[in-house]
Design a protein around this nucleic acid. Structure first.
Length: 640
RNA sequence: GCCGCCGUAGCUCAGGGGUAGAGCGCACCAUUGGUAAUGGUGAGGCCGUAAGUUCGAUUCUUACCGGCGGCACCA
């Protein structure tokens, strides 16, 4: 007797072993059709797997994310089958399900071209039509290796060789196609249905290692029904509309050009946003007990050798040689400069912690393929700071910074922030004993902060472990923004000290932290986050004054002047165009407030205030409208 | 850096071995219109750069530069 307990607590009893498919059919034909997989004692399994013990049991359909996972994995297999049928010389490697879809990596001498995707997709539909049964088989290790080697599938053979000895080797057979796979899978190819689409071609390294050969990856998306697929494709279109590169053009924020790959040409409007962010951070840092400095961009090679950058960061550094053969480097980080400022004069233990901030522009030679709009550039500005403190103060300083960064992100509407803890990398300075101290302190502060975090082994900076604060952008990409690093190595290398109570020289600990991280990247994330519709305090142009007819020009000038003198970033538009045209124009440019004035407003000393995207307008006395704008324009610093 | 794709007017894009076209934008003229496109006229291009093939290259080939999508790398 097998007793299955369903999610609603009801029980079903069977004489002997039973499959999920049978149970679904018993419950109803609709469910039998919709069933994609089952969950037995919390584990997702094949519908065809015989269940012979009492279990917690659930049927998964297209509504369950876990079933979609199975479906997408099947889509990957079906794509591989299609590719093998069309291009038999191709070797298949790995093909997992991913968020929203799947991919499969292929090894093939010729490159796939975009037209191939259409053919493959067509063949996939045929395979779905054939409704091939998908059968799970357990093979011996040697049989499986020999089989794949005979088939010329050397990557598969290699994967099997790396599977731990104690694990079963399972293969899934569908039609003539057999693939190594852990499963689970759908019972037949027909279950995939029609709601999938191949999306793009890309290169990917075998086993994710750039030392290995490059494979050809095909990405696809797959869903339980047409509606889901359509919604996803629509979401992609919407995401594209808020791409910061596109909005930057429409809003006249910045541009790039060949003469300076990976470096931003800020236009006046973009620069206003950038400066607004700096002003905001300057205020927050001032409140938090920081001072602000500025250090040179170009500094002698000797400094970088002393700091360890020459040894550990050389490939990312721009260097320059002057007429007298002296070698300089453009700073890729602000820390050595900050340390040199700290070292001027004597620091007493009474002065610690010393919190020294710098909006430092750094240059890093990033790999060309990494560049991405304003999010990933070769020249960027960090809201950097270096905090020198005693070991006793270390953990508390870390806690304060974690609290500060989270509070700052909240001001921009980012509530969902992921924290990653990264420890010692292979290429590093200092002894293991020092790293032990640093990692313990940083982790301690993190634990105390009670924010959940994930572990990023071996990803620390070369001088110390770090926390990374990660925000997710509109298109679902994750961006590392803030970072907090603790460091005893650079103070050692550059001989930093303070004088303790006994009058002895003591080595301080150093914290490196950036909260926005890169001002450039943070600006980009905000543009996408707000889809260009910046909150008033950040908007480059806060209000446009415009006229219905030229009768109101003189009054519009008055309104404009009043706004300017109240500190509002305003523009005046008295072009001889229809009001519809002007509204549309400024709406496209994402101006938050349009103040329309006609003869009526001019006569009565009023304005018609219209908000971006709004349907109607409010008629207000000029003074009142200015009060509203001024109050709103203060932004999150309003309380100060 | 690696794989694939792309580079034509300010923007979005069409075209194609005989030195180019649209829409939007811009300028000018007319129009003074109450909340997301008024009409007309006109100016704008060394067809990314360099070599090669050719009588002739923006078009074909190659290399380089830059961009896009991934991978790898990272704030």
């Amino acid at each position: 007797m097998v007793t299955l307990t369903l999610p609603d607590g009801s029980k079903r009893e069977y004489e002997g072993p039973v499959t999920g498919a049978q149970v679904a059919a018993d419950i109803g034909p609709g469910l039998a059709k919709a069933a994609l997989a089952v969950k037995i004692n919390g584990e997702v399994c094949d519908l065809t797997l015989p269940i012979s013990e009492d279990s917690a049991f659930a049927i998964l359909t297209g509504k369950d994310e876990e079933a979609l996972d199975v479906l997408r994995h099947d889509a990957a297999h079906i794509m591989a089958e299609a590719v093998k049928e069309l291009y038999p010389e191709t070797q298949v490697t790995i093909g997992p399900s991913i968020e929203n879809g799947f991919y499969y990596d292929f090894a093939r001498p010729e490159a796939f071209v975009p037209e191939d995707l259409e053919k493959i997709e067509k063949r996939m539909h045929e395979i779905v039509q054939r409704n091939e049964e998908i059968v799970r088989e357990v093979w011996t290790r040697s049989d499986a290796i020999n089989f794949f080697k005979e088939q010329g599938e050397h990557y598969k053979a290699q994967i099997i060789e790396s599977i731990p000895e104690d694990q079963d080797i399972t293969l899934y057979r569908q039609g003539d196609f057999i693939d190594l796979c852990r499963g689970p899978h759908l019972p037949s190819t027909g279950k995939l249905g029609k709601s999938f689409k191949l999306m793009k071609l890309a290169g990917a390294y075998w086993r994710g290692d750039s030392k290995n050969e490059m494979l050809q990856r095909i990405y696809g998306t797959a869903w339980a029904d047409k509606k889901q697929l359509k919604a996803y494709l629509h979401m992609l279109e919407e995401a594209e509309k808020r791409d910061h590169r596109r909005l930057a053009r429409e809003m006249d924020l910045f541009h790039f050009q060949e003469e300076a790959p990976g470096a931003v040409f800020w236009h006046a409007k973009g620069w206003t946003m950038f400066q607004n962010l700096i002003n905001y951070m300057r205020k927050r840092q001032d409140d938090a007990g920081y001072v602000e400095i500025s250090t040179p961009t170009v500094m002698d090679r000797g400094l970088w050798e002393a700091s360890g950058h020459w040894e550990n960061f050389r490939e990312n550094m721009f260097t320059t040689k002057t007429e007298d053969d002296r070698v300089f480097a453009l700073k890729p980080m602000n820390c050595p400069g900050g340390i040199l400022v700290y070292k001027q004069g004597m620091t007493s233990y009474k002065d610690l912690p010393r919190r020294i901030a710098e909006f430092g522009k750094v240059n890093r030679y990033e790999p060309s393929g990494a560049l991405h709009g304003i999010m990933r550039v070769r020249e960027f500005t960090q809201d950097d700071a270096h905090i020198f403190c005693t070991t006793d103060q270390l953990q508390e300083e870390c806690e304060t910074i974690i609290a500060l960064v989270m509070d700052i992100y909240k001001d921009f509407g980012f509530e969902d922030v992921r924290i990653k803890f990264a420890d010692r990398p292979e290429k590093r300075l200092g002894t293991n004993a020092v790293w032990d101290v640093l990692e313990t302190a940083l982790r301690g502060a993190l634990d105390k902060s009670a924010y959940p975090y994930s572990y990023n082994p071996g990803e620390g900076a070369f001088y110390g472990p770090k926390l990374e604060f990660v925000l997710r952008d509109a298109i679902g990409r994750d961006w590392q923004c803030g970072t907090l690093q603790v460091d005893m190595n650079l103070p050692e290398r550059l001989d930093v000290h303070y004088i303790d109570e006994a009058g002895e020289k003591v080595r301080p600990v150093m914290l490196h932290r950036a909260l926005f991280g890169s001002l450039e990247r943070f600006t980009g994330i905000l543009i996408e986050h707000y889809a260009g519709r910046m909150p008033l305090w950040l908007a480059p142009v806060q209000a446009v004054v415009t006229t219905i007819t030229s009768d109101a020009d003189a009054y519009a000038e008055e309104v404009f002047a009043a706004l300017k003198s109240a500190g509002i970033r305003a523009e005046l538009d008295v072009r001889n165009e229809k009001i519809n045209y002007k509204i549309r124009d400024h709406s496209h440019k994402k101006v938050p407030i349009i103040l329309v004035v006609g003869k009526r407003e001019a006569d009565e000393g009023k304005v018609a205030m219209r908000r971006l995207g709004g349907k109607d307008q409010e008629i207000l006395a000029l003074k009142e409208s200015i009060d509203i704008l001024c109050a709103e324009a203060k932004g999150p610093l309003a309380g100060n």
